[in-house]
Design a protein around this nucleic acid. Structure first.
Lengths: 331, 331
DNA sequence: CAGTGAAGTGGGAGCGCTCTCTAAGCTGTT
DNA sequence: AACAGCTTAGAGAGCGCTCCCACTTCACTG
């Protein structure tokens, strides 16, 4: 009643275990008629290789971990990003015949668990999604002898390969667009500075303003809509004559739009607004939001490809994907 | 340079492999001072048990598969349900020290892959999310000798334990609420009839109308907003004097609301509307939607508990979770 | 003081597989 | 006819672990 083993198949086919193994693993050094006999025996017995036994000897598991090191509520509910990443990565890995083990690492306890799991050789590699600088997990995992890639540049300077979108360049493009359209007092609502996306987008903004000798006007939000509204109100107090704002993500831009309307400023008449991310809602705001689009799904599959490459001794150079200015009505 | 084994720890601690194994697995039949020596050796060597070797002999893997048998785009983008289920199930499994292997099974090819994976003993159990009747995967997996539970009652009559919300009872409650508030011509926009949620909610509607000797007026949608609008227009043509509609999900209800407005009917003045699911958007429609709330996260964790129970010979009785009428302004 | 039993430890088999090494069977060349 | 050189199959070791069983030790009982 228990599952058939290689041994059983070998007995039925009248060959040795080794030969069956060769057939199962697609080796060519088996005579065609023997092959057929073996395949029939496999079929009749419903044989499926035992993965534990196999990986015990091969030292491979054909599965990789997708470690999401963020508070669980944020992960799914608030941010469609994660869903897209998971879906895209899953699909890409499936094509390579690898399994995805999803690990949500929010608490210290689950961190320990993740580390133990990875250390125990359960997975061939790790894909890491961790957005916050204070997160100890990336360094911990990087120390292990297992291929790791990161979704997004790690917030602490550790040497693990990553795939990121060009946050700096994207921000530069956005701000330059505002300059080119004749705006002169350009403020920014930055994201949280413990996140790379927050840092880099602010850096891009500063780069362009510095090059054009303009003063930067900065308020900091935390990537939520509410914080965008609050920051916008603060900017209007700080510099009532501003005529453009680069907002580090669309969610905050939506909040900013709201605050601007309440303050009686028209967009883009009085104030031009450029967001970042091109989320779904950006199309439906009033006016529709000009924003920087970056390819989330592509980034996820690039991450998978990077990891798969690593398995075969491929390069570990970071991959930076371009962003694209989507011009709608707000700027 | 390679990972230390039990043998190495045993040598260092000056004991046998068996003793180290006992310590690692928390058995109590080890003298305290020996225990300490072993623990120190483990720590010094950085020993972590090899999971493949362990599961080869124990026949357990401590991981379970979460198989999502739906088109991949639907899975995440359109429906926050999946995200909630995945999050809730992950959290619950983590507490039980089990891993989640996420498998998206959309194509026939990936079906084969999922079956092979499960058959190969990679996981101790399977949680299945499959909403459509024509899906062959539930039956295929049910045939294997592995504990399986389903999120939602399987659309085909196969004998696998499941956790579902009370779709029939919920629909009954909703329709009864409409009756109780004095409505007399109550129509319904049903969901797709190859889905259990579609079938059951329609059945609940019919039950109540039958008992109160009223004629049922049915249009069928596919759970999308557009289909809700279309169905609503059709209902208005079929029976212009209807004064209430039970809509099988909120997304369609949003569409219906829109169609009613276009047709110049006020809600709830002319037509009362009750939805199902209590999605986020239901709060923000105009008027806010009266709807049936069901506990998605609870359902997911109940599914996990059911599966964990199965591992220990627990009951395989279906679990049905109650739904709750959330009265807002539309009815 | 022998006998019993509990507690603690070690030996060794074996989980199901892969892979190296060896042996056997061919073909083809001189 | 003999042997090199190839292809193909089998034997056997071993991956790292658990767990059964046997053994030793020591306390306690009659």
């Amino acid at each position: 009643m228990k599952r058939p083993t290689l041994e059983a198949v070998a007995a039925r086919a009248g060959v040795s275990r080794a030969t069956v193994s060769r057939v199962v693993n697609g080796q060519t050094t088996v005579a065609p008629h023997i092959r057929d006999v073996v395949l029939r025996a496999i079929d009749e017995l419903g044989y499926v290789p035992n993965s534990a036994a196999r990986s015990l000897v091969t030292q491979r598991t054909d599965s990789v971990a997708l470690v999401v090191s963020e508070p669980p509520t944020r992960v799914f509910s608030d941010d469609p990003l994660f869903a897209t990443v998971i879906r895209s990565a899953s699909l890409e890995l499936e094509a390579a015949d690898k399994q995805v083990v999803l690990m949500l690492a929010s608490t210290a306890k689950s961190h320990a668990r993740v580390e133990r799991y990875i250390a125990s050789g359960h997975v061939d590699g790790v894909m890491l999604i961790s957005m916050h600088g204070a997160d100890p997990l990336p360094s911990a995992i990087a120390r292990m002898r297992v291929p790791v890639v990161s979704y997004g540049r790690p917030a602490v300077p550790i040497d693990i390969p990553f795939v990121d979108n060009d946050n700096v360049g994207g921000a530069e493009k956005a701000v330059r667009h505002l300059l080119d359209s004749g705006r002169t007092r350009i403020a920014t609502i930055a994201g949280p500075l413990d996140m790379i996306a927050g840092q880099d987008r602010l850096a891009g903004y500063r780069n362009v303003l510095r090059d054009s000798d303009r003063r930067s006007i900065v308020a900091v939000g935390d990537f939520t809509r509410e914080s965008g509204a609050i920051a916008m109100r603060q900017l209007l107090r700080d510099d009532p004559s501003l005529d453009a704002v680069f907002v580090a993500n669309d969610l905050m831009a939506v909040g900013a739009l709201q605050a601007l309307r309440q303050a009686g400023r028209s967009v883009p008449g009085d104030v031009a607004l450029v967001g970042f991310d091109d989320i779904e809602a950006a199309k439906y705001t009033d006016p529709p939001l000009t924003t920087m689009r970056h390819p989330v799904a592509d980034q996820a599959s690039a991450m998978v490809q990077l990891l798969l490459g690593l398995f075969q001794g491929g390069p570990s150079d970071p991959v930076i994907l371009p962003t694209e200015l989507v011009i709608r009505d707000s700027a």
